[in-house]
């Protein structure tokens, strides 16, 4: 029994943590007793169940995932390239530093409002997701490349290894842990920023629009919470899938 518990310790603790959250939510909702503001978990789960059976739900989820994924992918590529260039050249790093510092320091809502002037509401979540992800990926790439073992690089130089051999033996092993950590952060960040953009600019056929609609038009907190749960589930699902992919690649020996 004890062995069985230790084997499934992590998933059991995670489930227990989630159940405690739901219990606290239920207690708070019961104590507050105004379902219009704070509904109980069960009606929310029921509303979510009903949403799952509608075409609007899947269309909104699909388009939101598509937009935010596109933005995140673009941000990751830009951040990765900026990280490589910054690691290769102090001049580039210094030149890019103010831009990325401004992006990091500015609240996402400000960017959404500012960018809305120039970009349509359908494309804005893509842009915002990219904007939030790029500095994180840039820092992860830069830190990883800067942590490359100088002693290994010296060995690679001595043995006249080719550029690709040096990337494989020296840079990738240093880069991967940092880039992976940045990627996991980016998934959550892109998702949160993208949904925030959808809510503020009311992007048609999106989760953000559904949340705004539930809050402002229908004043249906149960529906609002159901959509919020959807956002959380999808974000966790992406993170889980990414970690699973990394684990599988590591087990197959493809990751340094």
């Amino acid at each position: 029994m004890k062995t069985l518990f230790y084997r499934f310790r992590k998933p059991l603790l995670l489930t227990a943590g989630a159940l405690i959250l739901f219990l606290l939510w239920h207690i708070a909702a019961a104590a507050f007793d105004i379902p219009l503001i704070l509904p109980k978990p069960l009606p929310v789960l029921k509303a979510l169940g009903q949403l799952l059976g509608t075409a609007v739900f899947w269309k909104s989820v699909g388009l939101s995932v598509l937009r935010i994924s596109l933005g995140a992918a673009a941000g990751l590529i830009v951040g990765f390239l900026a990280g490589i260039l910054s690691a290769a050249s102090d001049t580039v790093r210094t030149l890019l530093s103010p831009l990325f510092s401004v992006i990091r320091a500015t609240p996402v809502a400000c960017f959404i409002i500012l960018a809305w002037v120039f970009i349509g509401s359908a494309q804005l979540p893509v842009f915002i997701a990219a904007l939030m992800v790029a500095p994180v990926m840039m820092t992860g790439t830069l830190t990883g490349l800067k942590s490359t073992d100088g002693a290994l690089l010296e060995a690679a130089y001595l043995y006249r290894l080719t550029f690709f051999q040096r990337v494989r033996t020296c840079y990738l092993p240093a880069l991967l842990p940092h880039a992976t950590a940045a990627l996991v952060n980016c998934i959550g960040l892109a998702w949160k920023a993208g949904i925030a953009a959808e809510i503020i600019v009311k992007t048609k056929d999106s989760i953000g629009y559904a949340i705004w609609d539930a809050k402002s038009w229908n004043v249906d907190s149960t529906l609002l919470f159901a959509w919020t749960l959807t956002v959380i589930f999808i974000s966790l699902l992406f993170e889980y899938l990414f970690r699973l992919l990394l684990k599988l690649r590591k087990e197959s020996g493809n990751v340094a």
Binding site: L152, A155, Y159, R160, Q165, R168, T169, P173, A256
Partner: peptide, 28 residues
Amino acid sequence: SCSLLFQDKRLFGNLTALENVAIVNEKR
């Protein structure tokens, strides 16, 4: 041209023993 055995070995951690040896001769 020189080859050097480093005192601290400096093996490439993500390569196997065989790959660590072969890589120094795997030119284009």
